[in-house]
């Protein structure tokens, strides 16, 4: 009988799901699409679309892939047994054809021209308040093939993942110009993706 309890206890570990959450922020304040945010006192940012794929690592059971959509708060939290995460979807899944759910091409994250998924999609514009100039941008950062694969583990683990967009755009502006329309796997795409991943951290 004690063995049975032990076995049940051990098995229960496999089926334990934790509530997990992504917090989208701009300078530690809740972030909303289509709102304006200031950076360096002179640049006014506005995002119209922000989506990214988060996948649990290591993958157990079903593949635990979550599509985070800034427009849909229901996607900002989920149940999963793994607390270590990666941005992007592992290559074996990207090359296995058409899926449903989070991976349904209807979500606009599956490339029609090049097999594979966009890991992070971000569309918006910023105004330079000093010069009055407006710059639109569109980033489709993804793909699974070396050397530009956009799949990366988020260091550490936890149940609350902070995604600070001010940090991301601050880093982008500090790097040499990469271009504002980046929509296919490339060196610039990978660099933006790495900057995005480095702007993610688990809440302590």
């Amino acid at each position: 009988m004690p063995y049975l309890f032990f076995v049940l206890f051990a098995l229960s570990g496999l089926f334990t799901f934790a509530q997990q959450q992504v917090k989208l922020t701009w300078n530690n304040q809740p972030f909303e699409l289509d709102s304006t945010y200031l950076l360096h006192d002179t640049l006014q940012f506005q995002l119209s679309e922000l989506k990214c794929y988060i996948q649990a690592v290591p993958q157990k059971g079903n593949n635990a892939i979550h599509l985070i959509d800034a427009a849909d708060p229901e996607t900002w939290q989920w149940q999963d047994h793994a607390t270590a995460l990666q941005v992007g979807i592992r290559a074996e899944i990207q090359t296995a054809g058409v899926f449903t759910g989070a991976l349904d091409p209807i979500n606009g994250m599956y490339w029609a021209w090049n097999t594979g998924f966009i890991s992070v999609k971000c569309v918006g514009e910023f105004n330079n308040l000093k010069t009055g100039q407006t710059q639109s941008f569109e980033f489709h950062l993804g793909g699974y093939q070396a050397p530009f694969a956009c799949i990366m583990a988020i260091p550490g683990s936890g149940t609350i993942l902070n995604c600070d967009l001010q940090t991301w755009f601050g880093h982008i502006l500090e790097t040499p110009p990469l271009g504002w329309k980046i929509m296919q796997p490339s060196k610039a795409s990978l660099m933006l993706f790495e900057l995005f991943t480095s702007s993610l951290s688990y809440a302590k």
Partner: peptide, 16 residues
């Protein structure tokens, strides 16, 4: 050769 599966090939002409 960008698309690897016949079942996803149609996505491109449908949406292009």
């Amino acid at each position: 050769g960008g698309v690897m599966h016949l079942n996803s090939q149609a996505l491109n002409p449908l949406t292009h």
